[in-house]
Design a protein around this nucleic acid. Structure first.
Lengths: 257, 257
DNA sequence: CAGTGGTCTAGACCACTGG
DNA sequence: CAGTGGTCTAGACCACTGC
């Protein structure tokens, strides 16, 4: 079978390409569109390679390459002997998959949360631009603290979060406070919004008086400012997060390849 | 042919494994050991997949998978129609492959260098621990500024670098100042040390009086502290770098998968 | 044991590069 | 045009999981 033949179903899903789109990329785009459509939910198993190959009239190796790339991009998780599953933030080994803050000593990263605020507001200029909304559109604004779990509890992170109001209709302080596990897990199961990737911009700033009070540092103390924009399927931004990190005993870790 | 047969040459290069080492990983380890041995120099082309397959008595697909992983880990660079080449820091499109600092406006990242110091010193406790030396061993210490290229030149980065003296014997201020292109390119071509990966720890700190003077900020102004430990082949640390970044008009960018 | 992903092969053909 | 990496196939067999 030739890569250019048949496959109407695929060509519809195929994304813009340089000049030539190999078959496995068309399969990949097709699978991605099905993930986006919610055909398989986070944590669920997708059909086996052989079954997909048979259904799509393609060899196993071609499906394999498509699934490999999706697994590498954290959309799918392969488990030998069991199957291939839709990735989820709900059962992360690390409590927070996107949080790169680590204690200086290799100790545990157990942190407790303290919800400060959760309300619906107009997005405003900055959040609207990042989230591709109008400034007058509604947004959910959350403010919260992360503190060390060990007593005495020390504030470490002050987060300020904006979410598009249209996507998070029933999100209340009660729901947030009651939820155990990663916040992104709640977003998945309650609102069907799965974070796929994120971009962060990091700066050093001086604490304002309010920030200093909440984080237990002196005003104008240096803090790490981490601005994160998280995306769901289709490069659609769905969360803006402004985190202030105390870094006397923690650091932001990064790996450069 | 079975994955467990023959292949004395490979088993020697095979690294510790969970319980089962597929053939392509043995090939990968073999290629990696040859890269480490300098059999092919940075920028050079390695033998074609078919030739390697023939020499190693293995199918092209197996070599392919090994090379794929090495390319993904930035050891090799594939160029369709031309060949597969040893990765190098000398011909990076971006001037600095490991520098994640970006201007807030999407403008160019052109920076100029100003060498402040380059001398041979005792490593000292901190650098010795990081570089796996004795505190009494000699190290090369470099201090330099990076400034915006556009006039008026603004200081942006203050770097302090430690290198193991034993590996960088002829490294002098003159050599450094005369070198055009990335510093890591000089390390490759003059000292045969290729940086393979790096770890960074990022913090917010207050500028000391000296640091403030060099960077043109007020004392105790917030700065981004980026501590980088770079490794060459075999997980061997070969550079400790302590960078202080001004982040009023620049930010450290990161992608989270 | 059956079902899954993981490895390996052999061979055909395609896309890209440079002489 | 020859030589390179890139794609695709069909089939065999291996390793891991759970019943």
């Amino acid at each position: 079978m030739n890569a250019r033949d048949g496959l109407e179903e695929r060509s519809a899903a195929a994304v813009a390409v340089p000049s030539f789109s190999p078959l496995y990329r068309q399969i990949k785009a097709l699978l991605l569109s099905r993930l986006q459509a919610g055909e398989w939910k986070p944590g669920e198993m997708i059909p086996s390679e052989l079954e997909l190959a048979a259904r799509l009239k393609v060899s196993q190796g071609t499906v394999r390459k498509a699934v490999d790339e999706l697994a590498q991009e954290n959309h799918l998780v392969r488990r030998q002997g069991k199957g291939t599953f839709v990735a989820t933030h709900a059962e992360e080994r690390t409590q927070y998959r996107f949080l790169r803050l680590t204690p200086d000593d290799g100790a545990s990263t157990r942190l407790q949360r303290r919800l400060l605020e959760c309300r619906r507001v107009r997005a405003g200029a900055e959040a609207a631009r990042a989230l591709e909304l109008r400034a007058s559109d509604m947004a959910v604004q959350i403010r919260r603290l992360l503190l060390t779990a060990a007593e005495p509890a020390q504030p470490v992170v002050l987060d300020e979060i904006w979410l598009p109001g249209s996507l998070f209709k029933g999100l209340t302080a009660e729901k947030l406070a009651a939820w155990r596990g990663p916040m992104y897990g709640l977003f998945e199961s309650e609102f069907g919004v799965r974070m796929v990737r994120a971009e962060e911009r990091i700066r050093a700033v001086a604490a304002t008086r309010d920030e200093a009070a909440l984080l237990g540092v002196t005003p104008s103390a240096p803090l790490l400012l981490v601005e994160r924009l998280s995306y769901t399927y289709g490069e659609r931004p769905v969360e803006l997060r402004r985190g202030l990190y105390r870094t006397e005993h923690f650091h932001y870790r990064n790996e450069l390849g």
